[in-house]
Amino acid sequence: MRVCWNIFLQLQGWTIRDEFPYHLKKCVIAVGPHTSAWDFVVGLAVRSKLRLYHLKFLGKAELFKGRFGFFFRKLGGFPVDRFSNNNVVDQVVEKFNASESFVLALSPEGTRKKVDKLRTGFYHIAHKAGVPIVLAGLDFGKKQITFSEPFLPTGNMEADLQYIIHYFADKEGKIPEYGLQHLDQQAPN
């Protein structure tokens, strides 16, 4: 499949601009902006090209039901009931603590629609587990994947989230109007 994914990325014109931090055994990868189901397809291709087969992802529980549930599990996904009171953050932190190596990718928006703010679960997971966050930008305008330098959450969530929003603000999603530019413009100076 790796050859097929490489051909897909080439034909679509995608490039990977930055090095992935392979030295990290544990981290949260925040991928954005998340505006389309195509983000998942590009993500799978990048995962294969960079040989990140150990990468896991959270997905809405509905994806894991029915005949395609096995497919998403095989790809490294595990279901999350976004509307229950189960403490997903603590469950994922336990997975980090119990594993020697655990890399989790998820979208800070939590949806493909335009958002008024980021969801904070990814931040709380990284902070409680004591693992760095790596930002992965999907820029459909430039057909470019970028990676930030890893950073540990400081505990000043407002400042850290503003840094994250600013990183994603110049990345054009598949559906540009659903991107995060509007949140960066609202930032206090």
Rank of each mutant, 00 (worst) to 15 (best):
K142N: 12
K174L: 07
F168A: 14
G66A: 03
H23K: 01
P188K: 13
Y53T: 00
R73S: 13
A159Y: 11
N156G: 09
R2N: 10
T120D: 07
V89K: 04
V131L: 11
G110Q: 02
R82T: 07
Y53C: 00
N85H: 13
R112L: 10
W5K: 00
K114Y: 04
M1I: 05
K74M: 04
K113S: 13
L152I: 11
L50V: 04
Y167V: 05
H166W: 10
G130Q: 07
L104P: 12
P132M: 06
A61L: 02
N6M: 11
K128Q: 14
E62D: 15
Q10L: 01
K95Q: 15
D90A: 10
K74H: 00
W38P: 07
L183S: 13
Y178Q: 09
L52H: 03
S107E: 02
I29D: 03
D139H: 02
P108Y: 08
I165P: 04
A98I: 05
K60T: 02
N6W: 10
G110W: 00
Y163C: 03
Y167P: 04
P33S: 02
G130Y: 08
R17Y: 05
K174H: 14
K49I: 00
G69P: 02
S48P: 03
Y163R: 13
K174G: 04
V89P: 07
H23L: 01
E62V: 11
E149K: 14
L106S: 05
W5L: 01
I125E: 05
S48R: 06
F20C: 05
M157P: 11
V3Y: 00
A126W: 02
R17V: 09
I133P: 01
Q144N: 14
L183H: 13
F83K: 15
A126N: 01
F147M: 11
D90V: 02
I164K: 08
L135Q: 09
V92S: 08
L138G: 05
G32Q: 03
G121T: 03
E158A: 15
L52Q: 04
P21T: 08
L161N: 14
F70W: 14
E100K: 12
E158M: 10
Q162Y: 12
E94K: 14
D39F: 08
F40W: 11
A187Y: 10
L75F: 01
G121S: 08
G130D: 09
